[in-house]
Design a binder for these strands. Structure first.
Lengths: 234, 234
DNA sequence: CGCAAACTTGATGTTGCTCAAGCTAGGTGG
DNA sequence: CCACCTAGCTTGAGCAACATCAAGTTTGCG
């Protein structure tokens, strides 16, 4: 019940942040560690699928997940990438509304939903924490809607790179997800993502150290491109 | 703080629902009416703008609002339409992350954020209510991401019509928003929305009683079209 | 009844998709 | 250790869906 995918720490004032947080996770909260259990998933493994009935809430302790929804013909929309500190729960009806899969090796902390609900009542400030986290998720979702509905391919890719760079705090960005994952998150095709990255590289805005390791060369330019102020040939 | 746009009642099991609820609003909750004040907005009036600093939380009592975000060049994404029973608050940082405007005449109930926070601590079950509501909003946001990122124009329009029809519970749907609003919600242009509606009309899936009053003639067909199973000429 | 905003329709244009083909890298087994 | 093998990445050519630009038409209100 409750939040479907929320971060578990309050502080994150970075406007570009997609719901990420790097403080201590829920497990660090009083009373919580005692009622949880740890588990691990290998890359590609499914945590649960859209439509599954479950009664668990998970917290990501380490690694990265993708959450996605599918259309009947297989079109996929990745609604978010979750890293350490994020919670993923379930619809109030107890039916999962998205599939969750490990991208990297992932360590998770699992709670029974009933236990989780009890914590809300018993642990002071816990509910507020969750509400704040949910609020951040909602904002991230709205940013993503603006991206999906109104941004061009270049703007989408630039926004995405800045977002994950912001999470990692540096100009060398590690990209654990595939181009296909990125495409399905941005509402593009793999080919368009590739071509766009190539153009950014050619324009000396970024460098590709390896396909999954990107260096941001001109952050200012990238930021302009992300909101459509980049009329320098794009 | 807390939820940015949440409905205030728990029950809504309709999977197509975009966070709407028709139970009693927050104002009906114990203790709450006493600390709130009512106000009214005319169609087109702005409640607050993206970037504004505020310390209020609103509940929609009557009428409909649009929430949107803008890009620097004016491109607009409407992240949601809010009707009676919905809450709209603010980013935890106290800065609005979207603009809220009245579509119809709107009656609102306003709370100080500090008051609102106190209620979370003092009123039993209030926090859980808000969390459930936030969870529904998050689900609606994820559905919208799937729509924006992966659906075709026809699928988008069909999904939208079913969504507002679901909120109104009948086959005659009142569409208070303009075509331009619909376009900016679905990530399309006005012209594409018009043409798509025209085609649905020609195919006897819907009828246009007036431009803002639509009758669903073949709901089954519309539902198939909404998820991409409509290979009947579309 | 007139006016302005909203809606509709048509002709043309462009972005990003599709289909097709190579390329690269990292992991595995001989 | 190296060479193969496969998943993922990249690039190209052509195309289609939707956008843009440009008129008209309807609607509802003053």
């Amino acid at each position: 019940m409750y939040a479907q995918a929320v971060s578990t720490t309050a502080a994150n004032t970075d406007p570009a942040s997609h719901g990420v947080c790097r403080g201590p996770g829920l497990r660090a909260v009083n009373h919580v560690a005692a009622v949880s259990s740890l588990q691990t998933k290998a890359p590609g493994e499914t945590l649960f699928s859209e439509g599954d009935e479950t009664d668990c809430v998970f917290e990501v302790v380490r690694g990265m997940l993708r959450l996605y929804k599918l259309l009947p013909d297989g079109r996929r929309q990745i609604t978010g990438f979750l890293s350490a500190g994020h919670l993923l729960g379930f619809a109030p009806e107890g039916v999962c509304i998205y599939t969750a899969e490990a991208i990297t090796e992932v360590t998770l902390c699992r709670y029974k939903r009933t236990t989780f609900e009890r914590l809300i009542d018993e642990v002071p400030g816990f509910a507020k924490r969750l509400l704040t986290a949910a609020s951040h998720e909602l904002r991230a979702a709205q940013d993503q809607m603006l991206l999906l509905g109104r941004k061009t391919a270049t703007e989408k890719v630039a926004s995405f790179l800045l977002l994950i760079a912001g999470q990692q705090g540096g100009d060398r960005v590690d990209v654990p997800m595939t181009r296909s994952d990125i495409a399905d998150h941005l509402g593009l095709t793999v080919e368009t993502v590739c071509r766009t990255i190539t153009r950014l590289k050619q324009d000396r805005v970024i460098e590709l150290l390896t396909p999954s390791r990107i260096k941001i060369v001109d952050r200012g330019q990238l930021e302009e491109l992300a909101v459509g102020e980049g009329d320098t040939g794009f």
